[in-house]
Simulated scan of single mutants.
Amino acid sequence: MRQAGLIDTVCGLGRQDHVCWVFDSPDEYRPAAERFLAEALAGGQRVLFVGGADQVAQVSGAAWFAAGLAAGAAHAHGIGFYADAGLFDPLAQVRAYAQATEAALADGYTGLRVAVDATPLVETDAGRDAFARYEHLADAYMTSHPMSAMCAFDRSRLGAGAVAELACMHPLARAAATPVRLFASAEPGLTAVLEGEVDLASYPLLRTALDRIPLRPVDGVVTLDARGLGFIDHRSLLSLAAQLRARGAETRLIVAAGSGLPRLLALLPVSGPDVVVQA
C-alpha cells in the first residue's frame, strides 16, 4: 500500500512510494538520496541515481553503490537522462521509466527505485509546467507498478513558491514544503487524491496543479478523494467548484465521516460537486 502524508525521513518507504524531498544545501540532499537508494538495493530492487556530474561522481564513488554498479543492480546517469538540450517530454520520460522497471523485473529484481535532483529542469516557468505534468503521469504509473522515486529540489535555488508547485504533485513531501497535495489514486474509480489544507493563500497552488493535469473521468465522473482534506475555506471551495465545473464533467468529492464539507456546500450558492461521505 502506498503511503501519503508529510514525512521527515526517507527510510522505510515502499516499492510504490513517491516522495518530494526539498533541501536547502547539497550536503543535506546527498545523504538522504543515498539512504533512500541503499535501503532499496538491500531489499532486492534495482536503483538509479540521476543528477549533476559532481553528484553522480560522489554517489558512484561510495563503496555500496560501486558494488551495485559492478553487479548491474545500480545505475547512474547525468541530468541529460531527462532532457537533452533543454527539451523534456513528460510522456516519453514515463515510458523510459516503465521500460526500466520492466527490465529490472525481467532481471530478477523486485522493482526500480530512482533518486533524482531535478532542480536544473525546473528553473523556468515552462520547465516547472512540463515537470509537474510529468510528476502526475509518473505518479499514476507508480500506483500500479513496483517503481518508487525520490524527486529532490533545491529550495535555495528555486525559491519556496516554485518548490511548493512541485511538492504539491506528490503523495509524500517534507513538512512545510507544501500545504496541499494533489496526486494519483491507487483505488479503482478514483481520479485523484486531494489532501492538506486549502485557504486563500494556498488555493492558487491547487488551481495551478489542477490546470496542469488531466483529471480523466471514470465511468463519466471525475471523483476526487478528499478524505485527507483537513480544511478548506468557503471562498476556496467556491473557486474549486467553479474550476471543476468548467471542465464539463460530472464531479464527485469523497469526504471522511465528520467532514464539514457537505454542510458548507449546502450553505453556498454553488451547483456541484456531489459529495459522498465514506469511511
Rank of each mutant, 00 (worst) to 15 (best):
T191A: 07
A266H: 14
P217W: 08
T101F: 05
L268C: 02
D89N: 14
L91Y: 03
S236H: 00
F36E: 10
D125F: 05
G161Y: 05
G161L: 13
V275W: 04
L268E: 09
D24R: 15
V22H: 07
L200H: 13
A177Y: 06
T178Q: 11
S148E: 03
A138P: 00
V270D: 01
E197H: 02
A40G: 11
V222R: 04
G248Q: 14
G51Y: 01
V275H: 05
A103V: 00
Q58H: 13
C168F: 04
G68W: 09
A130P: 04
A71G: 01
D17S: 07
G14L: 12
E28W: 00
G230W: 01
D107T: 04
Y203D: 00
V222P: 00
L166Q: 10
D107K: 14
C11P: 00
G12W: 13
I254V: 15
V56L: 05
D154V: 03
A130Y: 06
A173N: 11
Q278C: 09
L41K: 12
V116I: 13
A98C: 04
F65T: 03
G80Q: 15
A103N: 03
E250Y: 00
A57R: 15
A83M: 10
S60F: 01
G68V: 06
M1P: 07
V19A: 10
D211Y: 11
I79Y: 13
L210R: 12
